[in-house]
């Protein structure tokens, strides 16, 4: 871990301004992913701006019947919130399917959105990785890729987004609220927040330098039955091979988003129109043009079968 300066921020706008003018600055909140990566010098910030004392830890109802979740609301608290459990159960289910109790006590809403890939080559500084070191190559292509992406990949990167919470956020059409270094704010639709790797896999999302997430808002509840089915080799404390977030209405219509499949939460609205026809029809559209490797081709039938299980449960 490189040495770094450490500052506690006093307000969100000050934090953003400080981050923009300080070379090599990064925000730290829960730290559960950032410190992990700093120990391996995959992240090497020269300056950490601790945002934990900013009062961004509340969940409030919005005027249009939704919820505004402060950026620093801990995963445990978000999952345990009575309104979330009642109206956005898919979000609670996604959060509690991830990591461990200890990590969820620490991890924050904003930080979880910024979680970086678990690609083993990204995690090994001896190996080429365009995400870690642009231009160095991708060792995952042609390497051990069982966990990695099957769609939306590029010649530069086949990493997956590893999180669970964001899959539900994507399903719910959440909005990410930020403050920029100049003090202005903006709202980013979650669909536009995470990126595909393309030629610039080192850029995970559309945040600008110094831009700080202040909240994530959820539109009014969707009703319906909520599911988050996470498939993995061990029963807990593991990243998803495939996960399916879904809200299914009584008439069989609904929404579905997939985790473990791509560099970002994978939701294809056109596929949702096919949900009443069944999992195969929806999956065909959702994963059209998929580019799996030998190691991870199983994810395509797995995603379809997992969706079928969800739809079967929704019917029953």
């Amino acid at each position: 871990m490189k040495a770094f300066e450490y500052t506690r921020a006093s307000s969100p706008a000050d934090a953003a301004a400080l981050a923009a003018k300080t070379p090599g600055a990064k925000f730290i909140a829960g730290g559960t992913n950032l410190l992990d990566l700093m120990k391996l010098e995959i992240e090497t910030p020269a300056h950490l701006i601790d945002v934990n004392k900013l009062a961004l830890d509340r969940i409030e109802e919005t005027s249009d019947g939704g919820l505004r979740i402060g950026a620093l609301v801990r995963n445990t608290d978000l999952a345990a919130d009575k309104r979330v459990r009642r109206d956005y159960a898919v979000l609670t289910r996604a959060i509690v399917a991830g990591a461990s109790g200890q990590l969820r006590n620490k991890a924050t809403t904003a930080g979880n959105l910024l979680q970086r890939t678990r690609c083993p080559y990204f995690y090994d500084p001896n190996q080429p990785c365009n995400k870690r070191k642009p231009g160095s190559g991708c060792a995952a292509i042609g390497g051990f890729s069982r966990q990695l992406a099957v769609i939306g990949t590029s010649k530069a990167c086949i990493a997956t987004y590893p999180g669970d919470m964001a899959i539900a956020m994507r399903l719910l059409d959440a909005t990410v609220e930020t403050v920029k270094p100049d003090g202005s704010t903006r709202k980013i639709a979650i669909a536009d927040f995470h990126r595909l790797p393309g030629d610039t896999p080192h850029i995970d999302n559309t945040l600008q330098t110094g831009e700080l997430i202040t909240a994530v808002t959820l539109p009014k509840p969707l009703g319906g039955k909520h599911f988050y089915h996470k498939v993995r080799d061990r029963a807990s404390y593991a990243f998803a091979l495939v996960s399916v977030a879904a809200v299914v209405q009584k008439d069989g219509t609904g929404r579905v988003a997939f985790g473990g499949m791509a560099h970002k939460p994978w939701r294809v609205e056109a596929a949702e129109a096919a949900l009443p026809k069944g999992a195969a029809a929806a999956a065909r559209i959702a994963f059209a043009g998929a580019t799996p490797t030998h190691d991870n081709a199983f994810k395509l039938p797995l995603a379809e079968r997992t969706l079928a299980a969800v739809l079967s449960e929704a019917r029953g």
Binding site: N126, P128, G137, C138
Partner: peptide, 8 residues
């Protein structure tokens, strides 16, 4: 591997 210009 030829795609790896500078292994780390």
């Amino acid at each position: 591997a030829s795609a790896f210009p500078a292994s780390a």
